[in-house]
Design a protein around this nucleic acid. Sequence first.
DNA 1: GATAGAACCTGTAGTGGCTACAGGTTCAAG
DNA 2: CTTGAACCTGTAGCCACTACAGGTTCTATC
Lengths: 140, 140
Amino acid sequence: MGTEADSVCSIGALAARTGVNAETIRYYERIGLLPRPRRTDGGHRLYDHGQRKRLVFIRRARELGFSVEEVRELLRLVDGGDHTCAEVKSVTVRHLADVRRKLADLGKLERTLGTISARCAGGLVPDCPILDALFEDGLG
Amino acid sequence: MGTEADSVCSIGALAARTGVNAETIRYYERIGLLPRPRRTDGGHRLYDHGQRKRLVFIRRARELGFSVEEVRELLRLVDGGDHTCAEVKSVTVRHLADVRRKLADLGKLERTLGTISARCAGGLVPDCPILDALFEDGLG
DNA sequence: GATAGAACCTGTAGTGGCTACAGGTTCAAG
DNA sequence: CTTGAACCTGTAGCCACTACAGGTTCTATC
């Protein structure tokens, strides 16, 4: 049915369409996230709609901060065909907890940096509250 | 004057005192953040109070998310002796902006993950809204 | 002073997730 | 048929460590 959606394309065209670097696409193939594609007689890679869909999935998951190993896990569930919604959710919820931990850590960082930065008037004097804070041993 | 504070110690003792891994301490020396320390006749490193103070500075700055290059910059200012408070603040403010950008990105991530995760009941069915969201091209 | 074993030494390789070459081949347009 | 853009493989580099391997030195005990 579709004419454009089913068309086969080169790695460069796939890169342009998906926004994923061609070298990254080859990298995904090497580490087994993407299957080895069909080739031309000369050895150039040819991608079809299915692989394009899979690459978009990978890109989306990476954008959402899933590690490559987590993406691999998700793809295994997709490929297995017999996955449950609960299995997928479990991977996602674990990752979400990770993100929240990082968010909390970064928030703490931001507050500390904000505090020590505010203590500093930024003048021409060599005596600096920021450096003082960095030489202190404890947190605060 | 001080008896403990001025005492010389081995790399292992320094690691224990500062909480920085001994291998990391050697790494900092190799990349030029820490000066080469005095040695025993047998070649073991010996650290004094000054180097301990410097290592604590590095550790604190790293904990606050400054990159090694930023730490190097801060140390250059410290070492120069003629630094101004404004120079130090400039490095810090730049880093703070970086942290805030990351915080915003991570917040967006968290919201998106929260949304797609909430859409999923986590049941035994194979039809999963999370996977659907990952196969979608755009953001949301 | 001998000996065990903990701690140290150097140098190299691995981590994650790409990115950037070098040096060669194939493709598409004119 | 020629140009040159795009592709190919394989390897090395990035950050900030961390983890060895294989050897030496230090310290505690006898």
